[in-house]
Design a protein around this nucleic acid. Structure first.
Length: 482
RNA sequence: GGCCCGUUAGUCAAGUGGUUAAGACACCGGUCUUUCAAGCCGGUAACAGGGGUUCGAAUCCCCUACGGGUCACCA
């Protein structure tokens, strides 16, 4: 059958970029939506820049995002023989020719052309070489590259599923190199052979490739291959409208993972960059995204990457996702701070889970969960300055803390409910507003002025630690208020 | 510079000739409350500019401006 096949073809020259992830996502969604196959191909023909490390990083990032591929990864570096055969075929049919110009010569001519205001195109001087000229150049020891002979008239039309028909005059297209002199194919050539061999039906990629597409179409045609459908998705830009790069902060998927973002949040956010579903809902479960995804709803204009919205969404998923899953994901962050052992003792899991359960409501990343949970794992070494000034400056606070401590000592079952009841009763007896008890207590047991519900904190810390911390705080207040 | 794509609030976006021009993030206010969040309620804020076409243009056409992409023996 004519089933749909799409591919994601990154070059392993760095970790998976946010833009790359979005391209992968759209391909993946399109495949899932249409019961097609999602193929992973690694475009590693740039021997200098490709690295094994990047290769693994990209695969890891895709897996972490949940963008599993159905086939591959195929490596272009293992298909060199195939490209050579195809190039030879074009040479034999006269659709391509050998070019003996050296990179240095070309660069010099390009520079000269630009300086005199002419288009920096290849002058085709090797296109019509006589046999004599050719053998002379070969005698000089020159290794030829292979160029595609572009028709000098006519237009090439890209039929794009997102942008409609885009035409290019053939006269503006260079006789570009398809095989470098070292026998390695260039991108615009290898891509075509691969897309054909892998029976790709839809080439979905970033808009930066739109101007490459007529070149590729010309290769398809020269080889007599049927064209796939093309769909160029808009670029993702930085807030200053320039291309997203390092200087704009985190740009790779793994940086977001390490900063405590959830894959579901990244997926949801990225899906909404350049695509929108029918309804008004923006928090969308993956199933919903898949079932409503279509290329027709992909927008044409570039989108600016808004980390604030991503972060908001991350906070949402942090709160709404199953607590065990969030706990599992938070554990490495707690370990990194040395709060819990690595590996975590199984009997400690329940405690960690309770902590995560109360802390996650008020933060936006896993990293922040760890930041907000310190006092559940470590003794308090200092009190927030703002809190000291606000709650620890009056001498009677020490006495109040003592009274609280005494009362809590009497609580048998140390539950949030019971401790709260004890506090409210005490407040009434002393004729003191609840706040005057709650705030100093919070500062005493957590060292902070804000956080989860006070009585949840008390319950999780447990009677012993709470009494201890109240004692310590009372002493501290006495000391500073003299 | 040539070629190509694009332009609805600060940002993402709905919208395909007649709408009070959705919704979301951010921002501001209110509410709830033991704090901080979250939640809920409300608010500020947009069709790049100019010409056409039309009874009527965010929607169609042209020009200008601005932004982006691409012009490598990188992908």
């Amino acid at each position: 059958m004519n089933s749909i096949r799409v591919r994601f073809a990154p070059s392993p020259t760095g970790s998976l970029h946010i833009g790359g992830a979005r391209t992968a996502l759209f391909n993946w969604l399109f495949a899932r939506r249409n019961e097609g196959r999602f193929i992973l191909r690694i475009d590693d023909t740039d021997l200098e820049r490709s690295t094994e490390k990047s290769y693994h990083e990209i695969l890891d990032a895709l897996r972490w995002l949940g963008l599993e591929w159905d086939e591959g990864p195929y490596l272009q570096s293992q298909r060199l023989e195939r490209y050579r055969r195809a190039a030879l075929e074009l040479l034999n049919s006269g659709r391509a020719y050998l070019c003996y110009c050296t990179p240095e010569e070309l660069a010099a001519r390009r520079k000269a052309a630009q300086a005199s205001g002419r288009a920096p195109m290849y002058d085709r001087r090797c296109r019509y070489l006589t046999p004599e000229e050719r053998s002379r150049l070969e005698d000089e020891g020159r290794q030829p590259a292979i160029r595609l002979a572009i028709p000098d008239s006519g237009t090439t039309v890209v039929r794009d599923l997102i942008r409609g028909e885009v035409s290019f005059e053939n006269s503006t297209i260079d006789d570009f190199i398809i095989m470098k002199s070292n026998g390695i194919p260039t991108y615009n050539f290898a891509t075509v052979i691969d897309d054909y061999d892998m029976q790709i039906t839809h080439v979905i990629r970033a808009e930066e490739h739109l101007s490459n597409t007529p070149k590729q179409i010309l290769v398809f045609e020269a080889l007599g291959y049927e064209l796939p459908y093309f769909a160029h998705v808009p670029m993702i830009l930085a807030p200053d409208r320039s291309k997203l790069s390092k200087r704009h902060g985190a740009t790779s998927v793994e940086e977001y993972r390490d900063a405590g973002y959830l894959p579901e949040a990244i997926i949801n956010y990225l899906a909404l960059l350049g695509w929108s579903p029918e309804g008004e809902e923006e928090i969308l479960p993956l199933e919903k995204i898949i079932s409503s995804f279509s290329l027709e709803k992909v927008s044409k204009n570039a989108a600016i990457y808004d980390i604030k919205k991503l972060t908001w969404m991350n906070g949402h998923y942090l709160r709404e996702t199953d607590l065990d899953r969030i706990t599992e994901m938070a554990i490495p962050f707690l370990q990194k701070k040395g709060f819990i052992a690595e590996p975590l003792a199984p009997e400690s899991y329940a405690y960690v889970r309770r902590v995560v359960g109360v802390v996650r409501d008020r933060v936006k990343t896993l990293e922040e969960i760890a930041d907000a949970a310190s006092y559940f794992f470590q003794e308090i070494t200092s009190y927030e300055e703002k809190g000291i000034n606000k709650y620890f400056t009056r001498p009677d606070v020490a006495d109040l803390l003592e009274r609280c401590r005494e009362r809590l000592a009497e609580v048998e079952e140390f539950s949030a409910q019971n401790t709260e009841a004890a506090y409210r009763a005490l407040s009434e007896e002393l004729g003191v507003p609840t706040g005057q008890l709650f705030h100093p207590t919070r500062l005493a047991v957590s060292g902070r002025t804000m956080g989860p519900g006070l009585f949840d904190i008390l319950e999780i810390l447990g009677k012993e630690r709470v009494l201890e911390r109240l004692k310590k705080a009372a002493n501290y207040v006495r000391k500073i208020t003299g």
